[in-house]
Design a protein around this nucleic acid. Sequence first.
DNA 1: TTGGCAACCGTAAACGTTTACGGAACTATG
DNA 2: CATAGTTCCGTAAACGTTTACGGTTGCCAA
Lengths: 345, 345
Amino acid sequence: MKGIRRLAQHLDISIGTVSRALNGKPDVNEETRRRVLQAATELGYVPNQSGRSLRQGTTNIIGFMIQTGTEITGQGDIFFMSVFDGVQAVFARHKLDLVALLCSSQEDPNDYLRRVVARGFADGLILSATQRNDPRIEFLAERNIPFVTLGRSLTDAGQPWLDLDFEGMAQASIDRLVARGHRRIAITRPHDDVNLGYIFVDRCRQALAAHGLPLEEDLIFRSTPNEAGGYQIARDLLALKEPPTAIVLINETIAIGFYQALSEAGVKPGRDIAVIGRYSPHAHFLSPPLTCFRLSLRDLGIALAETLLSAMPAFKDHYPDAPANKVWPMELVEGESDAFLVPQR
Amino acid sequence: MKGIRRLAQHLDISIGTVSRALNGKPDVNEETRRRVLQAATELGYVPNQSGRSLRQGTTNIIGFMIQTGTEITGQGDIFFMSVFDGVQAVFARHKLDLVALLCSSQEDPNDYLRRVVARGFADGLILSATQRNDPRIEFLAERNIPFVTLGRSLTDAGQPWLDLDFEGMAQASIDRLVARGHRRIAITRPHDDVNLGYIFVDRCRQALAAHGLPLEEDLIFRSTPNEAGGYQIARDLLALKEPPTAIVLINETIAIGFYQALSEAGVKPGRDIAVIGRYSPHAHFLSPPLTCFRLSLRDLGIALAETLLSAMPAFKDHYPDAPANKVWPMELVEGESDAFLVPQR
DNA sequence: TTGGCAACCGTAAACGTTTACGGAACTATG
DNA sequence: CATAGTTCCGTAAACGTTTACGGTTGCCAA
């Protein structure tokens, strides 16, 4: 005898009553409820996931889809770990469990998602690495699966999304650098077609134009979002006939490789070139400290969770004013890497 | 009409036959099997996870338990992403899905594990952040849940485990440094009681003793396994009356902070002090390049998967000679950070 | 006493699969 | 032709829950 039956037999009571007692339903004497709860913890009873979700069509699981094999995602060391922690802080209140759905680098993300969804694995989904055009969005929207994406997409099905404020970063960086006399400003973008690259580049171009400056094509550097990518950017940059006097790095970890290649060439950030990047735990431990844009990843996770829940009928009442879409602000942390002032002629 | 019934009705066939056809069972005409398979892909049918696993008591899911909120584990995203990718390469062959079971930093890992297991969530488990004494191991062993741990433990229930070769790293590092004339050698260990700290320290002590050298207590530095921890270590080390001439860093990311604190004090690795550490993607982009111990995380993941499967009755035949326990070797990557030779007196 | 109501509980159906079992149609063998 | 064997398929039970429904008990008022 297993499961709820065992518990019922042990208490000499029907399984229906046991279930009602455990799930906080009415129609059960408070005294028996107490006995059931106690026996449950004593015997270590936990409702079987399959049975429960088969019956009520809900799993109490939220999936956070990420792709393994880091060459692709390029997020910094602890990016997801921090976001997860924030998400869970919210989910814990509703007895929801967060699992990371790991899409292998060998499998197409769309196929993977179809499989997971069709199997009825999760009640809701959080998507990361949102593509500029992302079929996953249409797919989920069609089937009415609650989800939220981390990152905007051109694919618009009215879905909720959160994204980092790359426009704000672009605008502030350009304004700051121009104010310090820079005229030739380089920027970087991811090597693949992830949407943030387009957003960032476009806004940089606008911001420059507002100052009457062009965004020169050979000053837009594509790279893999890792240390090696940053190294390569610096090498390419230094090889130009007329190198830029400033650069804005869009990814977190590329700063390490970028610094190293500069250092090998005797070029010092903050003295010979201005560098602005993204915060990650090592940003302060570069020399000179990196001027960078930071955000609280944990808070971002909290917001993701709240936005998702507000899109789920069962929970929306708890989060009446969670925004369906939000551009998450980043804060400028002043380092010394952008101290370089261009001498005015 | 949904699920398998819909498919059966569409083909004018019984659900039993459909199920048999899909699952590759005998007793089904090859022609009808073909029709079923085709209709399944056409209608996008995927068996419901709950129904299936309720019936056959198996989920085809393997859980990789990790703790979120990295202050504790110190392993970054890239670490797990790479390991995951290796694990999945193996699992894909058996139609097993890997999900990451995310234990919030707010919840006790043992409680979390009990919940997950009791719910019948996964067919097998991979545990990381193994503790020196780890109740999770007893728990899983008692219930006969197949699992493997990444990291040894004093808790021995005959469970399979894989671990990095910290003994080999300790031995090789000490021998190498002693051969270069070092007599005062510092080492680091994690701030918490994770088992690898004990293993590493013990072997360093042995290796030093073999050379007739003591391991001085004030040369063992505890730190959080991140950049800030490495920074603090360097500060403390430089503040000693008689600083060591060499150090072995046990964690990956602490090298960045360590380098920075040295640099601020005008001390250069490889010239003024010998440094040996662990490989991570930035190791080559430090200056000078870090001499470090490296391993293939993807291969480690593959081995983890194979060892786990060899502990599962349903799959053990495929992996007759997967080792139940293995100390995974690390390879020394020569940088320049340990080039410092102690002048002989 | 009778009726009604409230409080509590048991029964059984349902969720979507898999699979043991038996039966029908054919084929081969004697 | 009778029998046995093979191939294929349908039926129904089972997995562990939740929950609609109805039934029993006790109490109170009429």
